[in-house]
């Protein structure tokens, strides 16, 4: 799309986009091991298939960035405490660390967390899952390659047959 309107919208230097480096939280919200665990957690929520998963798209860093900068301060403890309890829960559930489980074991554990009667666990799960989905869906990779976001539609057509639109694009990507 950008090419269609020429040089007018060539990206200036201040619009380089977010990368793993620019979204790294300062000061660090999590320890190195917590960070690694969060990466495994988001990857379990949205795993690599024939396309990258949440870890490969650095969604765990996005999650930390948002909690550090935007969320109520209490969310920081929710995240840390939740991560710290994760390995213990994994031990009980399948006798290994969280990362040591296979995909099925980890998925089952998260399903269990989502139904937990423990308010802290439930809050931790919905916080991380919500931000994971948001970070994944709004990542450059997904919006560019999978949902085909149109930055410059150049039009608004009011009455388009659904069938015709489905043919044209796989998804609108909003």
């Amino acid at each position: 799309m950008a090419g269609a309107v020429g040089g007018l919208i060539s990206l200036p230097a201040w619009a380089n986009g977010w990368t793993a480096d620019t979204v790294r939280s300062t000061p660090q919200l999590l320890s190195r091991s917590q960070d690694g665990l969060l990466a495994e957690l988001v990857e379990t929520i949205i795993p690599a298939t024939d396309t990258p998963g949440a870890k490969g798209l650095n969604v765990h860093q996005f999650v930390q960035k948002m909690i550090t900068d935007c969320y109520p301060v209490t969310a920081q403890n929710t995240l840390r405490n939740g991560l710290d309890s994760l390995d213990g829960l994994a031990k009980t559930a399948y006798g290994n660390s969280f990362a040591g489980g296979d995909a099925a074991q980890r998925t089952a554990l998260l399903t269990q967390l989502s139904q937990s009667t423990d308010a802290g666990q439930k809050e931790f799960y919905s916080l991380v899952k919500g931000l994971t989905v948001r970070g994944y869906m709004s990542s450059e990779y997904v919006m560019t390659n999978l949902t085909h976001y149109q930055f410059i539609p150049g039009h608004y057509y009011g009455c388009v047959p659904v069938a015709q639109k489905n043919q044209k694009t796989t998804s609108q990507g909003k």
Partner: peptide
């Protein structure tokens, strides 16, 4: 003005 949605640090 020309930033894509993913280019905003906090979306």
């Amino acid at each position: 003005t020309n930033m894509q949605p993913w280019e905003f640090e906090h979306r």
